[in-house]
Design a protein around this nucleic acid. Structure first.
Length: 158
DNA sequence: GCCAACGTTGGC
DNA sequence: GCCAACGTTGGC
């Protein structure tokens, strides 16, 4: 099993939205970056662990734990002209953008970005690297175990 | 609002 | 294929 950090703007999809969703599960819509898409399309498996990260907000940081809850499938928003994620160049016969569903495992206290940066155990985290803008990044087993420990989350699959 | 960093576009 | 221009991300 692999582990991931997935960024979401809480205005759009916060950990609270996830907790309130049917089955505490949401489709990860809106990814329009090929590298992030490829992680979902090629490397994620159902049951993979997810650090749910709040970005572009007053208090950025890890807000909870989630898991990958589906295999990849086409992001419906790419075909919706009314959606901000509409992609007129994507064809239904050959969808450009795929997504996975994500299910809540645990809401946690916020692990603020500043605290992540101060933590030597997280010094090499992909998402903390200079200039990184990827909304989905791999998390190593060590980083995953460390974050769950800090957040006091016990998870059978961890 | 600012700005660094990166990704994408499109002319050539 | 190159690369300048432009757009986006995301912290501050």
């Amino acid at each position: 099993m692999r582990h991931w950090l997935m960024k979401s703007e809480p205005d759009e999809a916060s950990i609270d939205h996830l907790a309130a969703a049917p089955g505490q599960c949401l489709p990860w819509t809106g990814v329009r970056n090929y590298q992030a898409r490829n992680f979902m399309r090629d490397e994620m498996r159902v049951g993979d662990g997810v650090l749910f990260y709040h970005s572009s907000c007053p208090a950025p940081g890890i807000a909870g734990i989630a898991e990958v809850a589906s295999t990849p499938y086409p992001d419906p928003t790419q075909f919706d002209p009314a959606s901000p994620y509409h992609d007129p160049k994507s064809r239904r016969e050959d969808p450009r953008w795929l997504l996975v569903d994500v299910r809540l495992v645990a809401r946690t206290a916020l692990l603020p970005l500043a605290a992540m940066r101060e933590d030597p155990a997280l010094a090499d985290m992909a998402t903390l690297r200079r200039g990184n803008r990827l909304s989905i990044t791999p998390v190593t087993p060590g980083e995953w175990a460390h974050v769950l420990e800090r957040l006091q989350v016990r998870w059978a699959r961890a």
